[in-house]
Design a protein around this nucleic acid. Structure first.
Lengths: 418, 418
DNA sequence: CTTCTTAGTTCAAGACTTGATTGAACTAGA
DNA sequence: TCTAGTTCAATCAAGTCTTGAACTAAGAAG
């Protein structure tokens, strides 16, 4: 309770402005009158605020729609050209830098594959800064005119509210421990900088634009080399959105199981991490070697082999280890998700990440069934398990979401509120 | 986003009033000037609002304290006699009805033991209403002058924002499914009625008055016949408090383990539920029968036997099964808590409930060590695992907390805001 | 007894929302 | 073509709120 709750009559206006701008941004209403009805504000106030928003270049009128026998409503739309944001996705296998306009349309993108097992933080920071320079150079705004930069990392972010430049990143899969990434990046970036967990960013992206639209409590599962998750609760009328980053992969689901690189035993990641799946398959008798090299290719190959028995009956004996590996995966993935459902009571679960995109289309029905068997009925009845809807730049999109969320919460102030 | 965010200049006053009242209630500041500094409001506004609060009987001046060479500050204190609330704890073994003044001091209490395995909802409702009648008759306000009634149940509460009387309770341990408890109680209660999960209520009690004071993200573990948990996040300057009820007991931590009454297998409850602990001990070779009858007595006996080997070395062979049962408990309880830490990243974990109170003092150090081994270091470093500080009426206190929280959020309005 | 310091109050100024009123733009029907 | 009716949006006076500044209250120090 130590922080202050400064509430002047001017803050009131900013709150209302934020509310209306957010509604326009999320595309709920179109005319001023609709806005007034939806927000509960009087038409007079809506007119006032909207005229401010138009004056500031955030919103524009875009044609009109005839209404049942009256003056047509003037359509309001957020102006994509108000500004740009950058979303950065730092992953184990590649770094992706995307330039988006603030309505999150992709303008330019740079992808840098990462080969070394250990990503030196300083080299990563340099790559990110170079990427931002490139995407802004190709098409767009001067680097110092960005509305903000969001960075998603595959690990935990320890924010320090008082001194944001002290934000530390812990990412076991990158071998990062207490990396002051914010400090390393801020020197090259004039715009507001946001760093957060990749699953968190992805969750916000799926909530805004993907499979979690309309959910009040969405759990987004990020399946890749590791297994992360995030709980996303969109902004309520009163307060801001809240989300929780979940170290799902290091949840124990088998007491005394295989040792995990985190030092514990029987972690979920030792069952459903991409590399664990492949290792498990390879160790089975009768498994065939893979053609591809990378983890991603091999996983796709594994899933592909599952379909063969249907068409060519002679290979059933060969398919056996594939089925075995995938069955084990389904049961552990299902139980892992069931635990999330029992723990958090979400109304939506989204399976995402590159491994999720590979596995989901094939395994989702079986996973759903496993989840059903391991959840309490009233919780299961309230939730839906869906495949992620966003493509490979989902996490970068989610990262771009971070500065936009700040902008919306501040009602379109370019400079953050104190 | 459908709900409205009505924000007039009068709501602003109520918000500020709520903020100041909450600060006074939680005992942060004492003088008007301190309040102004802490809240960020101007001294003028604080004076205004405080004089309203005094006028409404919520707050009173209580003496003064000399300040370093100036006018002494007039101390402000919440008036306990403003009103009363009732907290009801519906548990598997007893129903407890407590009358508290709104500063949560116990005024009167009634405890009704429950013998039948199945608690008929209608009989429970009658008992609760009778209990409220008794505690208010003994000492206190007319039943229709209560500020509110809070009811904690050992299960999930499915609230319906639109029609609160449709609130349903699902409590597997009571064999309740979709019980319209709110509707059954509301007929006999004029005051605002709040129903929520017991772990949730307990979490709020520990956050306000117990071992979770000052925590930003507290996980409270309720250990009894079942195993519940709740995540409590106190109100931020912007918004209200948020909490999540966690069906911790039905989290799977042993794939393919013993069947649980929920239909799943290997649930945490089959390892750390009070009855499961006792059954496990009884099944061990060399276990001795218990003297006591009830689950609570027997558990205390089990823990008591652990201390004997220290003083009387001859009994070591007999103590063996006790150690074995408790070691298993420690490891599973530790892993269960470790999972909560990894999942939710709390800064405080509180072990509570009657079984928690019995087990904690003896096992806590060992549990802490197990948790350490199974959590990610940066998460473990941020959290503390503590014994609950509230006594046997903790859950009833937590239930009483619910209407008080509503009152504070509304700035002391007796009638809830629309 | 005067001066200094801190606590709390009063008051005019400024900002905001609102309900009512007015104007704008279009449909329907004679 | 013209008029009545309908819906959308802007304008304005009224009322409420917070604030900064000036001012009063009350005790300590010298």
């Amino acid at each position: 309770m130590t922080p202050l709750a400064q509430q002047t009559t001017r803050d009131l206006r900013w709150r209302n402005r934020s509310d209306l701008l957010t509604r326009l941004y999320l595309g709920e209403s179109t005319g001023r009158n609709d806005l007034a009805r939806a927000s509960g504000l009087s038409p007079a106030t809506v007119s006032n605020v909207v005229s401010d928003l138009i004056g500031d270049g955030l919103v524009a009128e875009a044609g009109s729609v005839s209404s049942a026998g009256g003056r047509p409503r003037a359509l309001l739309r957020v102006r994509p050209d108000f500004g740009h944001v950058v979303g950065v996705d730092i992953a184990e296998t590649r770094i992706r830098v995307g330039l988006f306009d603030w309505t999150l349309r992709l303008v330019a993108e740079e992808v840098y594959p990462v080969t070394a097992t250990r990503l030196d933080p300083r080299r990563v920071a340099r790559t990110v800064l170079a990427g931002i320079a490139r995407v802004t150079a190709v098409a767009g705004p001067a680097a110092d005119q960005l509305l903000g930069v969001g960075v998603a990392v595959p690990g935990a972010v320890q924010a320090d509210a008082a001194t944001p430049e002290r934000t530390l990143v812990h990412a076991p899969t990158l071998d990062w421990s207490s990396v002051p990434l914010a400090d390393m990046l801020r020197r090259g970036i004039a715009a507001p900088l946001h760093i957060d967990n990749g699953a968190m960013a992805l969750g916000q992206a799926e909530t805004w634009r993907g499979a979690a639209r309309g959910a009040e409590r969405a759990v987004t599962v990020l399946l890749g080399v590791g297994a992360g998750a995030a709980l996303t609760m969109p902004a309520q009328p009163g307060g801001r959105a809240r989300s929780i980053t979940i170290e799902w992969g290091h949840t124990v689901i088998e007491v005394g199981g295989h040792p995990c690189r985190c030092g514990s035993r029987g972690c979920l990641e030792t069952f459903i991490g991409a590399e664990a799946i492949l290792r498990r398959y390879r160790d089975l008798p009768g498994s065939e070697p893979f053609t591809g090299q990378g983890t991603e290719d091999q996983l796709a190959e594994l899933v592909g082999r599952r379909h063969t028995p249907d068409s060519s009956p002679g290979t059933e004996a060969v398919a056996q280890p594939v089925e075995q590996a995938l069955d084990s995966l389904v049961s552990h993935l299902g139980i892992g998700i069931a635990n999330l459902v029992n723990l958090l009571g979400p109304d939506r679960v989204v399976l995402s990440g590159w491994a999720g995109a590979t596995l989901g289309p094939v395994l989702l029905p079986a996973v759903r069934e496993t989840v059903r068997r391991h959840t309490l009925p009233y919780l299961h009845g309230r939730t839906r398990i869906e495949q992620g809807e966003l493509g490979s730049e989902a996490v970068a999109l989610g990262a771009a979401t971070l500065p936009v969320a700040r902008l919306l919460a501040d009602g379109g102030r370019t400079t953050p509120s104190p």
